[in-house]
């Protein structure tokens, strides 16, 4: 009897000891089972996946709060933020987006909405050799995209190449900007300071922001490292680049982002990379997934795949 009691107590204690370690696993399985064949993954509180655009369609939103951008914002069109052929407003294709890679020329002549380069800008453009699907696409082995070495994506390319989700947080004197693609952060000062006059170059620049009305926040950024490209089509920029971002909160759930490029060394006039690009507010528990470029993983990828798919013309 006493033996039985001991066994029971031991079993009970064992159960209590195990249960704390088991329950999270069981709980996780209940909340987030691994996707069974043919089924969608169940959403849970980690690695959140934004809904696709139709989920937003027809949904009424509350009015925008005054002077508040905080939250996680996703590129509202499922693929709209991904700009493999160059900045969305000046896609380097000869036909509607997604087509017309063929027939391009080194100066981008013939694309739908060409940019106006200075002679220096055109020279810099030609020196940048993109592998993405644009009219200047070169065989992969000849590309010189800084991202292929996991060099920083820089600003504004983080908005003009793969704009996925960003998180904005406001403090008394800053807007903190987190960009999920390649894990970038920026500080946008709102304390009234001036932009630096002759800054040391930064990949993400120096940013100041101010509210021009209760729903529109305008950010100016300078001091950008010219080693970064502006977009995936290899558009260049100089150290004189100034970028204006205009975040306009339309209502509670929706925001528009306009990005304007001012770089008269490279372009004869300012141009917009994004024009009222839609961003959609995600739930407060949205967990941005990690997407970080590891040079070691990139080298392994090149070894496993990159070299194996070189076109025959490259195999001399």
């Amino acid at each position: 009897m006493s033996k039985r009691l001991v066994v029971s107590v031991v079993a009970l204690l064992a159960g209590l000891t195990i249960s704390p370690s088991l329950s999270p696993i069981l709980g996780a399985q209940t909340a987030s089972p691994i996707a069974a064949a043919g089924q969608e993954a169940k959403p849970d509180k980690w690695n959140s996946i934004p809904p696709i655009k139709p989920a937003y369609a027809g949904k009424k939103s509350a009015p925008a709060p005054r002077r508040d951008l905080s939250g996680v914002w996703d590129a509202a069109e499922a693929d709209g933020g991904r700009q493999p052929s160059g900045a969305l407003e000046h896609v380097a294709l000869t036909a509607p987006r997604g087509q017309g890679v063929e027939g391009g020329r080194p100066d981008e002549t013939g694309i739908m909405r060409p940019l106006h380069y200075t002679p220096l800008g055109l020279e810099a453009l030609k020196a940048n050799k993109p592998s993405g699907p644009s009219v200047r696409q070169v065989p992969a082995a000849l590309a010189n995209d800084p991202l292929d070495q996991c060099d920083p994506i820089g600003f504004p390319r983080m908005e003009l190449y793969e704009l996925r989700t960003i998180e904005l947080a406001q403090t008394a004197n800053q807007v903190i900007y987190l960009n999920s693609f390649y894990g970038n952060w920026r500080i946008i000062w709102t304390d009234g300071r001036e932009l630096p006059k002759d800054p040391e170059p930064r990949w993400n620049g120096y940013s100041v922001g101010k509210w021009v009305d209760d729903y529109t926040f305008v950010v100016e950024t300078v001091g950008l490292n010219p080693r970064s490209w502006l977009d995936h089509a290899g558009r260049p920029h100089s150290e004189d680049l100034r970028v204006e971002e205009r975040f306009h909160r339309v209502d509670h759930d929706n925001m528009e982002l306009t990005v304007t490029i001012f770089d008269l060394k490279m372009y004869t006039e300012p141009w917009q990379g994004l024009n009222k690009f839609p961003l959609h507010l995600q739930p407060p528990d949205f967990d941005m997934p990690e997407l970080i470029c590891s040079p070691v993983d990139m080298a392994e990828y090149n070894r496993q795949v990159g070299n194996a798919v070189l076109p025959p013309s490259e195999k001399k």
Partner: peptide, 26 residues
């Protein structure tokens, strides 16, 4: 073939050997 490709890739040290996101090789 694989070895030759790797050698060519290693010789071409002045250029990156591959650019991800490009589907041109497929």
């Amino acid at each position: 073939r694989t070895l030759c490709i790797v050698i060519v890739g290693l010789l071409a040290v002045s250029v990156p050997v591959f650019a991800h996101h490009g589907g041109a090789s497929y």
